[in-house]
Nucleic acid binder design. Structure first.
Lengths: 157, 157
DNA sequence: CCTTGATATCAAGTTCACTTTAGGTTGAAT
DNA sequence: ATTCAACCTAAAGTGAACTTGATATCAAGG
């Protein structure tokens, strides 16, 4: 416990749940900022905790650090998100979550129909949809939305 | 087009959508097998296409290669999955997909309530749930199921 | 035979999000 | 003054899933 409102690294790690190495990493990546003491040790404003919470939340929603940085950079003057910012950004997140949910639901439903067909048919299966040249026109791909697709079949120039 | 039913690398890459490097990688990892021609070039049985389709499907459901290998190894005699195998395994996948869907739905709903609270409260927010020492008992974590949790807050020994 | 394009191997590189290691410094308490 | 936990930096390591690069061989048409 220190007397005024600057936090030490130890306090930040304890209260944020992040490892010191992660906190330092985020600083190098410009996601958070730190002041330095005379001896060169980091001191953090209390707001860094909120920022770290934001980072964790965004990461849990599936954003990459680059994306998170972009969101944080959108905050004018590098301030901590206000309620309005939060609402705006959460709209963004919600859309993303909805997409993921729908993608998974489609995948699940397709899985059900695949059980019936003894599937993995190279021609028709929407889950495997191997991008067989013979099936290039297949509608199967529609079942696997981009958000879930791991690899792009047929990247022939 | 070759005359009998062994496939060349080129045919496999064209028909599976996988890059040759990926196919070779899967072979080193024991996910697929290949015979060799006199000159040392790979030849594949046609069933490798089905296996690759299976691999892609499983990967799209979110399984790691290790998990996929485990599933494939479960097939007695290293054969291509039959309808029964497929049904058994898809049950596995379905559970996984259901989990992911529910996790995302909870996250989405929590996001909605967070908009109302101007959130990211260190104490209560289920989305950020930073593992603040003061909030160690928080129920917030319940909102973020393991499948979605990126990092384990407070791993203090 | 020669050329060309497809394949082969093996090691090393890539990306992401950090962690680990090694070795040195700080700062608060005794 | 001494001690020792907490802190610092820079560089290298991790793991997943491949890709890239360098270099060499194969296969088939002309």
């Amino acid at each position: 416990m220190n007397t005024h409102d600057l936090l030490t690294m130890g306090e930040v790690t304890r209260r944020s749940g992040y490892a010191a190495s992660a906190v330092r990493y985020y600083e190098t990546q410009g996601l958070i900022q730190a002041q330095r003491s005379a001896g060169g040790q980091r001191t953090f404003e209390r707001s860094v905790l909120r920022r770290l919470a934001f980072i964790r939340a965004a990461a849990n929603v599936g954003l990459s650090l680059d994306e998170i940085k972009a969101e944080l950079d959108c905050l004018p003057g590098d301030r901590t998100p206000t309620k309005a910012d939060w609402a705006r950004m959460s709209k963004h997140w919600r859309r993303r979550l909805e997409e993921q949910i729908h993608a998974l639901e489609r995948l699940r439903d397709n899985l059900d129909s695949c059980i019936g067909c003894g599937c993995l048919s190279l021609q028709r299966c929407g889950i495997s949809n191997p991008g067989d040249a013979a099936a290039a026109q297949s509608t199967g791909a529609a079942y696997l939305p981009k958000v879930l697709r791991r690899d792009p079949p047929r990247r022939r120039p």
